[in-house]
Nucleic acid binder design. Structure first.
Lengths: 211, 211
DNA sequence: CGCATCTTTGCGTAGCGCGCAAGTTTAGCT
DNA sequence: AGCTAAACTTGCGCGCTACGCAAAGATGCG
């Protein structure tokens, strides 16, 4: 499943990843700014410097493009989890793996948000869209499966036989989702999503001991 | 939210419900038989004896129509849960409420399935469709919220403050989903989904005691 | 019975998803 | 380097979908 070797990818693969990332980011940014129905795929493609037809080579729908960013993030959590030292305590490894994916990215740095409140409101509206909700939950389910597998490999449990890995994975995704929801709602969070996640995992680590 | 009074609805409302049910059932039946992409909305509308335009007055997408049947079912679980005697033990009430919604309906009786294996395979394919998965998860989330509220009302807990009602609701939906998945996979289930659900709830009732 | 209200329906339109067949770029081999 | 096979992009075109709008039909209430 994994590359086996971390960074060894050709120029081709590299470009594909960048295009994919640019498309997804453009989709999110535009939809948050203008609203789901006021953005056509043509505009997303243009913002990513690519033809409209190419958009559909990467994503089969607008919703998929929007959620892809978050899906990739959460999939990278599983990947990161596999690469962390086996001796590290589970919840410590999880906390690290998750937080590593929720730092500012080049894209967000390139596009400084002028009005945080407006951005937040846009995100709320985006997630209110039925199609996006479904796509989001689906992505969460996919990521959850991967995380469960990673946890199983790490704790010596079995995804098919033991309840434990799925339970942990579900809990992790729940924490991520709750943190994001909370970030969307409340207006007083200087630390952003990261601080919310830190807090959530601290509580989890205390309440769900490793077997 | 509830009618307050169970059956008091005019002819108008009655017809609407029937049309909705016929549309959703037609959507499910046709898609299971022929595959998602081989069924157009026009055909679903025709099978339900209604114009294509009317279809979109009831559902805003094919996927929504397909899942509506299951959504209504699970919402009725919450409704039923509110109407059961308050003295009844929680898991007993839940089990009753759920099982009551998974019996043969007039629609299924009118359309006896010739080949069960073929039907099952069709259902599997239907749920393999990305759009359906998303729609399904979304419906599950909606139902879960309603069930959580019903459980809260019944146990004197608070949806916003206590973890318990959400936890129970999530568990109930998980049980339903697992039972359906199991039904789709295994070929040896004389009792259908109902027997699977009974078993699932028996296990749950034993493992998740009321506080 | 007759009016007010809700529902259905047909029509028209903007947009989407994707198959197909060039054209263009990259990888690998000698 | 040079050449070839494979992968990626792009433009074109088509069938379908989702939905606004306005006319026609059904229903409920006094």
């Amino acid at each position: 499943m994994s590359d086996g070797d971390g960074g060894r990818v050709g120029l081709r693969e590299q470009k594909k990843r960048e295009t994919r990332a640019r498309l997804s980011w453009a989709a999110v940014r535009l939809v948050v700014e203008r609203g789901f129905h006021n953005v056509r795929v043509e505009e997303i493609a243009e913002a990513a410097g690519v033809s409209p037809r190419t958009f559909n080579n990467y994503f089969s729908s607008k919703g998929e493009a929007i959620v892809a960013r978050h899906l990739d993030r959460t999939l990278r959590v599983a990947e990161e989890l596999r690469h962390r030292p086996p001796a590290e305590p589970l919840w410590e490894a999880i906390s690290h793996s998750v937080l590593a994916q929720f730092r500012p990215t080049p894209e967000t740095a390139d596009t400084p948000v002028r009005d945080f409140e407006q951005w937040r409101a846009g995100v709320r509206l985006m997630f209110a869209e039925p199609g996006i909700q479904g796509e989001f939950l689906r992505a969460a389910a996919l990521a959850e499966a991967e995380i469960a597998a990673a946890v199983a490999g790490r704790t010596g449990t079995d995804v098919d036989r033991d309840l434990y890995p799925r339970l942990v994975a579900a809990t992790v995704m729940a924490a991520v989702n709750v943190a994001m929801q909370q970030w969307m709602r409340r207006t007083d969070h200087p630390g952003g999503v990261a601080s919310l996640l830190t807090e959530a995992f601290a509580q989890l680590a205390a309440g769900l001991p490793t077997p």
